[in-house]
Amino acid sequence: MRIIAAIINTLPTVLSSTLLCFFLPFSAQADGRIKGTGGVSSISGAGGGGLIPWATLTGHSTREELGGNMFLTMADVDDFTLEVAGAGFNYRDRAELSYARQNFTIKANDARISQDTVGLKYRLAGDLLYGSLPQIVVGAEHNALRDSATAKAVGADKAHGTDVYISSARAWIDGLGNRTTLLNVNLRYSTANQYGLLGYGGDDIGTRLHVEVAAGVFLTRSWVVGAEYRHKSDNLSALKEDSATDIFVAWLPSKRFSVTAAWVDLGEIAGAPDQTGFYLSIQGGL
């Protein structure tokens, strides 16, 4: 029994070391981009801001390098909490593969909804910092609920679904107040209810095209402040759904580590109005 307990106790360490050994051969050279150009990790796992993915590819690898990030995120609003753990992998600053596990908890009864998201992002053209074209990517996010009961109960059609988006971002080195300034715009096609946590589709399907916007300013090379907006539609006649916004502060002491704190306004969720609260995310380079 003791041996089993010891093995269980050391398992996370062994697993993370194995992962580290696997990534180490290339991670030593995966820092070729300017700090901050990889953004942070969004709740879907895709490189981005927080509530929405950005056109940036996670990490700091160039076209000669491979890289990635792992992250942990927590959001705590009035009646719910969301915990996310995940990772993103960057292939030569051309493609990004990401995974996230979301655990959404209803505080009142401690009920939990879990969702897995796999994301893929492909850089079509341009560059965040350099040249005449902004960075333009296409992406897809496939969400699957672990348990379809809640989604079915609220009237969603499916417990899984895929969002697709096109995203464009530019950072002006000499932007507002001579500070590096980022603007990101996404156009998303989705029938998700509350990020997929309440399934896909419904009896009152709203618009399927959603605009998402993020803006940020690098006050210094290590501190960024900004805001995001995520338009969402209302597909369920039984429950109202609002768009979501956040105001964030990110601290990037190195290319390998960042902390993002935000204030989120998620609007009405599952009959509970005005869901505002805090958001905290830490990210570490692979």
């Binding site: 009035d78 306004d265 005005d274 505002t276 609260g277």
Partner: peptide, 26 residues
């Protein structure tokens, strides 16, 4: 709850207006 939202909107408004002033400032 309502208070949180008010403070949130105030913060959002300040951020956006700061950005706009920075943008328009000649």
């Amino acid at each position: 709850m309502g208070h949180g939202r008010f403070v949130y909107r105030l913060a959002m408004l300040s951020l956006v207006s700061t950005l706009l002033i920075g943008c328009m400032g000649i």
